[in-house]
């Protein structure tokens, strides 16, 4: 069963705040994360399938999968003094990779890749109590050529069908975005208006329009990570988004969203 669908920002400054970041803004994003956590508890979810874009942490240039599924017993990642370890919902992870391949998606799988902060920053703040097992789902967002937004959307549609046929109560969460340009001369000038327009289309249940956007446009708008949103949009179809927050910092559009299923 698919019981919930969310999108969460994951910028690491939300976890460890340097003096450059507005404290009140960070706390407002945390408050939105806290709402997600309460929703996950209310939804009585059994597992979180989290779709995130690797920041060249799990996969370097030795091997760059477009779409990957983590199918180990547990996964782990570190960031500064933070140490994370999450149990994997193995039956669900296996079903996703096996049925995904059956449905024509040539998925990569891994049983050991390190977990990127794109996964654990949202989970740090939204993991319900007691904690749930997860299934990390990778989308290549940083190393061109990335999968097209349309392909991500189609993978999400398949993922949604796979999850809906399961007996577990599964929440889909995408991690990433919105506009930001790390490592470029655009770092301090994201495309906040693009974000706001996109959020308006999502509020109206027109998320499938993201599938028609080109990769070139996402790159231009600092939104290469929205490929992870395209996956969840493929799964939720025309559901309308409830935007918990949109908080533009000096370098990043932080959004937290729930889709009404």
């Amino acid at each position: 069963m698919l019981v919930g669908a969310f999108a969460c920002a994951h910028t690491p400054q939300l976890l460890a705040r340097p003096g450059t970041e507005d404290r009140d803004l960070v706390l407002r994003v945390h408050a939105a994360f806290a709402r997600v956590k309460r929703r996950l508890e209310a939804l009585r979810a059994d597992a979180i399938a989290i779709v995130a874009g690797d920041h060249v942490e799990a996969f370097f240039l030795d091997s760059v999968p477009a779409l990957a599924v983590y199918v180990g017993a547990e996964c782990a990642g570190t960031f500064g003094h933070y140490r994370y370890r999450f149990p994997i919902h193995e039956p669900l992870a296996r079903a996703i990779v096996e049925q995904g391949v059956e449905r024509g998606f040539d998925l990569c799988y891994t049983q050991s890749a390190p977990l990127d902060y794109a996964f654990y920053v949202p989970l740090h703040f939204t993991m319900p109590e007691p904690a749930l097992p997860i299934v990390p789902l990778h989308v290549n967002v940083y190393l061109p050529p990335q999968p097209t937004p349309r392909r991500c959307f189609e993978w999400g549609a398949a993922l949604g069908a796979i999850v809906r046929a399961r007996s577990e109560r599964v929440v889909l969460m995408c991690s990433g975005g919105m506009s930001h340009f790390p490592g470029t001369d655009r770092y301090a000038s994201p495309e906040f208006e693009y974000d706001r327009r996109l959020l308006d289309t999502l509020r109206e249940g027109r998320g499938r329009e993201l599938a028609a956007v080109t990769g070139e446009e996402l790159d231009k708008m600092g939104n290469i990570e929205l490929r992870t949103w395209a996956v969840v949009l493929g799964a939720v179809g025309d559901a309308k988004a409830d935007v918990y927050c949109y908080e533009p910092s000096w370098h990043h559009g932080n959004a937290v969203v729930e889709w009404a299923l």
Binding site: R17, G19, R23, H30, G80, P182, G183
Partner: peptide, 22 residues
């Protein structure tokens, strides 16, 4: 992205930045 993060990690190691940890 690698240029950005490598630089950040080196700067953090050379002159520890004060963070508020959540």
């Amino acid at each position: 992205y690698l240029v950005f993060m490598a630089d950040l990690r080196l700067r953090m190691a050379r002159e520890p930045v004060t963070f508020e940890y959540f």
